[in-house]
């Protein structure tokens, strides 16, 4: 924050009161997380009697031990990673090519096609789900990796973002390279693409995060447990809440499943915030 837009100053007393209010709000914000962490460190039978026992010992890591002994969670983690990476790579490739095409090249129907792509921004995933499901059934793509990542490639946001970005790069750069005898593909690959790295990072982070957290499509497409992504896997154990092995185990699973993304968030916070807010405003 540059601090250029600072409103009128406050007295030290006011500043301290404001700080105290913020601390209280932040505590309310993290309380559910701490509660989850606490529960995950307690023995299941003790929680069954009284969850209030969280506030005192003894604490144990046995719930995390049970997770490590269950191969399913690791399979789901691997599935999520694979699907999110494929989606991200696919979106970056398709969007960069299309963005360059729409921003720089002239071809019949260009304006019309771009408007058609923009229209896609208004189509919610849920409204195409019935026919998309039928289609993937007919092609036997359910419970396969392509079946899980292909729908993510159709989202128009990346094309929109990359088109805007390519348009902002001075045309003189391409012209100079073209005069030197470089091909269109070469101009795209070695002159312009390196300049779009910030946009690639934004789009990549946003796509990876959306794909990693997607629940809707894998819930419908992956019906076999070994093809679950982490979101669907964790949901499946949650739905059997009443019958599951225990609260502590369930909470350890929540901590285990959120740890990778929270760790990534702590390290790349600035980029993640920029990517997500940039995507929201379009």
């Amino acid at each position: 924050m540059s601090g250029s837009a600072q409103p009128v100053g406050r007295s030290p007393w006011e500043a301290r009161a404001g700080f105290a209010v913020m601390v209280v709000l932040a505590l309310i914000m993290v309380l559910p997380l701490l509660w989850t962490l606490g529960l995950s460190l307690k023995a299941n039978n003790e929680l069954l009697r009284d969850t209030g026992s969280v506030f005192h010992g003894p604490y144990t890591l046995e719930n995390y031990g049970s997770i490590l002994r269950r191969a399913a969670v690791f399979r789901w983690l691997g599935n999520s990673l694979l699907v999110s990476l494929c989606t991200t790579l696919g979106v970056l490739t398709l969007s960069s090519l299309a963005g360059y095409g729409f921003a720089r090249l002239e071809f019949p129907g260009r304006r019309w096609l771009f408007a058609l792509v923009l229209f896609g921004l208004a189509v919610p995933e849920q409204s195409v789900i019935i026919t998309r499901h039928q289609m993937f059934s007919a092609l036997h793509l359910h419970n396969t990796y392509p079946g899980l990542f292909l729908p993510g490639l159709s989202a128009p946001f990346g094309v929109f973002l990359m088109t805007q970005y390519f348009k902002a790069i001075p045309v003189e750069l391409d012209e100079a390279a073209l005069l030197d005898g470089a091909s269109r593909l070469r101009v795209f690959w070695s002159v312009l693409l390196p300049l779009t790295l910030p946009a690639q990072a934004t789009l990549g982070i946003f796509t990876f995060l959306s794909s990693w957290n997607d629940y809707w499509w894998p819930l419908i497409s992956a019906t076999r447990s070994e093809m679950f992504t982490l979101t669907v896997g964790v949901a499946s154990s949650q739905i059997n809440f009443a019958q599951t092995s225990g609260l502590g185990f369930l909470m350890a699973q929540a901590v285990f499943a959120s740890a990778p993304i929270l760790a990534v968030y702590v390290v790349f916070q600035k980029y993640i915030v920029r990517a997500v807010s940039g995507a929201a405003v379009r």
């Binding site: 969007s95 095409g101 090249l105 071809f107 058609l116």
Partner: peptide, 30 residues
């Protein structure tokens, strides 16, 4: 000036891969 070979169908090859996915997986289901 940005497109010396203006209006060429070949230029559309850049947008074709995405458009194919878009038509098949978004517009057609819609």
């Amino acid at each position: 000036a940005a497109a010396p070979r203006a209006g060429s169908w070949r230029n559309a090859l850049f947008v074709a891969p995405y458009l194919a996915v878009y038509l098949a997986l978004l517009l057609y289901p819609l």
